[in-house]
Amino acid sequence: MRTANRIRTTLGLALAGVTVALLTGACSMQDAVCGGGEYPVLHVGSAGSACVSDDEEPPKGYARYPEGKVPERVDDKWYTYWETRTLDEDGRTIEIPAES
């Protein structure tokens, strides 16, 4: 009987550990603004963003976020900040124009 209890306890702890690992891994991947090997870029003059491969420049109409103001996770400080702002053609931060 003692052996059966040890086996159940060991299995229970193993399952709990696997569950925690899976949940933790899924949350951190889900919250990232871009995947591994990518960086986020802003759509110039309007709302919108995209992810670009680390070895590529931003496509036409997009720009890199200003240094130190790059969102890394969904709903982090900079992600929220850029929900209402963008860059103009000269690289200045502006409020996102209201849609007509």
Rank of each mutant, 00 (worst) to 15 (best):
66 P>H: 04
75 D>K: 06
5 N>G: 10
27 C>W: 15
60 K>A: 15
63 A>Y: 06
72 E>V: 10
39 Y>V: 07
52 V>M: 04
33 V>T: 04
59 P>N: 14
5 N>Y: 13
80 T>F: 04
83 E>Q: 15
9 T>L: 15
20 V>P: 00
83 E>G: 13
24 T>F: 02
38 E>F: 02
86 T>K: 12
73 R>G: 07
44 V>G: 02
85 R>S: 09
53 S>R: 08
5 N>I: 10
30 Q>A: 14
55 D>H: 13
34 C>I: 11
72 E>W: 06
46 S>E: 14
85 R>G: 05
12 G>T: 04
6 R>Y: 06
33 V>W: 01
75 D>S: 10
10 T>S: 05
63 A>C: 07
55 D>S: 13
16 A>K: 12
76 D>G: 00
86 T>M: 05
21 A>C: 11
30 Q>W: 08
65 Y>R: 07
68 G>I: 02
27 C>G: 11
70 V>T: 01
72 E>N: 05
54 D>K: 15
34 C>A: 11
29 M>N: 06
14 A>N: 05
74 V>H: 12
77 K>L: 09
17 G>Y: 01
85 R>F: 08
49 S>C: 09
28 S>G: 04
40 P>K: 14
18 V>F: 07
75 D>Y: 09
74 V>K: 11
53 S>G: 11
20 V>A: 07
60 K>Y: 15
86 T>I: 15
43 H>T: 13
76 D>R: 02
36 G>A: 07
34 C>Q: 14
10 T>Q: 01
81 Y>E: 00
39 Y>K: 01
36 G>E: 03
48 G>S: 02
21 A>I: 00
59 P>F: 15
46 S>Y: 12
25 G>L: 00
42 L>N: 13
51 C>F: 06
84 T>K: 07
44 V>P: 03
65 Y>C: 07
68 G>F: 00
37 G>K: 07
18 V>K: 04
72 E>D: 06
51 C>T: 07
21 A>L: 06
85 R>Y: 10
74 V>F: 14
24 T>S: 05
60 K>M: 15
63 A>M: 09
43 H>S: 12
50 A>D: 01
50 A>H: 10
35 G>M: 14
34 C>Y: 14
26 A>S: 08
22 L>R: 08
59 P>A: 10
46 S>L: 12
11 L>K: 12
85 R>C: 07
56 E>D: 10
34 C>L: 09
6 R>D: 09
27 C>S: 12
30 Q>Y: 06
45 G>E: 06
67 E>V: 04
53 S>A: 14
11 L>C: 07
47 A>D: 12
7 I>D: 10
8 R>N: 02
